[in-house]
Amino acid sequence: MWKWLHPYAKPERSYQLAGKLLPWFVVATIITFVVGLGWGLLFAPADYQQGDSFRIIYIHVPAAMMAMAAYSTMAIAAFIALVWQIRLAEMNIAAIAPVGAVFTFIALVTGAAWGKPMWGAWWVWDARLTSELILLFVYLGIIALYNAFSDKVLAGRAASILTLVGVINLPIIHYSVVWWNTLHQGATIMKLDKPSMAPEMLWPLIIMIVGFAAFLGAVSLLRFRNEILARESHRPWVSALVTDKLGGEK
C-alpha cells in the first residue's frame, strides 16, 4: 500500500518533489498574507474592549499555533527516522527547527507587545507564556545539538532523540505551569481564545493561520532542499544539477 512512497526515501527524488511544491507554497503565502493582513488591519472592526491593539492577534495567534505544529511535525519525523532509519526524515527536522524557533520568538515578542497595553506588563509568568518560552529553549537545544556534530548523520540521529524526549516533556511542562500558575495567581485568566470572536474579525485570523502554515511549508521546503544538497554534495546528481545551472546562466 505504501510502495508509492518508497522512491521518496531517495534524496534526489525528494529534492525534486520539494522543488515542485515550493512555488505553490510561496504563492499561497503571498496571497494569504496580503488578503489576511489587508482585511485584518484595514477592514476588521476595532475590538470593544481592546481597541485596535487586538490587531496583533493576526500574527500572534498564527505564529504560536504554527510553532506547535512545526514541533509536532518534527516529532513525527523523528519517530519515522528512528523506527525506519530514514535519513531524509532527520534532514526534515534540521530544516523545520529554525522556522519553528523563529515562530516561537515571534509569538513571545508579539505577546509581550500586546501584553504591555493590556496587562500593564511586558512579561508575566502566565502559563501560556512560560510554556512558550520553554518551547523556545527546547527548539534552541535541538538546533544547537544538530550544529554541534560535524558528522551530519550522527547529528540527525541525536536531534531525533532529543526531539522525541522534548515532545514527551512538552505536555508535562504545560500542565505543570498551568497548575503552578493557577495556584499562585488565582482567578485572573486571560481569555485569548477565538470562539467568542465576531466573523469579521475571525476570518482574517483563519486566513493568517493558513498563511503562516504556508510560510512554514515554504521555508521548510527551501531549507530541506538546502540540507539535501549539503549532505549529498558529493553525489553525481548534485554535480549534474550545478553544471546545468551554470550552463543555463551562461
Binding site: 520553554i134 529553549f137 544547537a144 545539538l145 532529543l162 516533556n169
Partner: peptide, 9 residues
C-alpha cells in the same frame, strides 16, 4: 541548554 527545560516540571 538541553537539561534545564526538561527539569522545569
Amino acid at each position: 541548554l538541553i537539561m534545564l527545560p526538561l527539569s522545569i516540571p
